[in-house]
């Protein structure tokens, strides 16, 4: 089966290895992965700022790039939610609305694709240590991503998965929010890091690298040794 991957802009620029891990993982479960170099962004940054005209143009570009792809997999719950849930309204007056709606049904967030679409829960990974999951808000509340990453991680050998308090509480990232209201965003991350410290884990694992960038940013500043891992990274470890 051939799948196309969408690598979100900040993963492309700041965490390219997460992109590679995603490819490795998809190949490991027997898929033929293609990457369309014309892809850029899903449009979420201007969309969240209320700049819908700009977001619309970017969303149309996304639809044009992927419209003939059978399946599009992305290692981000947030970007997947943008495409699957928000394009409908955003592109309501656009010529590509129909294509966008149909494409939305073929776009999958990585963990849900593996578990719900392919039925794969064991990818043969091994990672030693204790880990907890951070549920990214958009993936959790807009796509219902809750059990998929847990089922995948439960099958990772030597990994002890624990639930921390506040696992479903926002980490405070929220895109531009994190820089427009740094004191609030940092306080929110502080609550998150407190719960992580209390859980005494080696890893915080999430389906969203943007949340992890924020959490790791404060963990590092606090000098906590806990490491943030994107789900794809945890699942390719051996």
């Amino acid at each position: 089966m051939k799948v196309s991957i969408f690598i979100p802009c900040f993963i492309d620029q700041l965490y390219p290895s997460i992109g590679l891990h995603t490819v490795t993982l998809l190949e490991r479960v027997g898929l033929d992965v293609e990457f369309r170099a014309e892809q850029t962004c899903c449009g979420q940054p201007p969309f969240n700022a209320g700049r819908c005209r700009e977001a619309r143009a970017i969303a149309e570009h996304f639809v044009r790039v992927f419209q003939d792809a059978d399946l599009v997999i992305t290692p981000s719950g947030s970007c997947a939610a943008m495409i699957k849930r928000h394009y409908v309204d955003l592109l309501a007056d656009s010529e590509c609305l129909q294509d966008a709606v149909q494409l939305g049904e073929r776009v999958w967030e990585l963990s849900q694709f593996l578990v719900d679409h392919l039925g794969v829960v064991d990818v043969g990974a091994r990672l030693s240590g204790r880990a907890t999951i951070h549920d990214g808000c958009h993936g959790l509340r807009e796509l219902g991503i809750r059990s998929a990453p847990r089922r995948l991680l439960e099958h990772v050998r030597d990994l002890r998965l624990v639930e921390a308090r506040e696992s479903e509480t926002c980490c405070g990232f929220g895109g531009l929010f994190a820089v427009k209201f740094p004191s609030i965003a940092t306080a929110m991350a502080d609550v998150k890091c407190g719960a992580i410290a209390e859980a005494g884990v080696d890893y915080v694992i999430s389906c969203d690298a943007s949340c992890l960038m924020h959490i790791q940013g404060l963990l590092d500043r606090r000098g906590d040794g806990t490491k943030c891992l994107h789900l794809a990274e945890a699942l390719v470890s051996a």
Binding site: D12, Q13, G19, P182, A189, G217
Partner: peptide, 24 residues
Amino acid sequence: RAWRHTRDLPAAPAKSFHDLWKER
């Protein structure tokens, strides 16, 4: 500063995923 005043940012990698994919 708005970010790094209270939090760290990751070290910027030399190459983007686009670059790595081309090499691959």
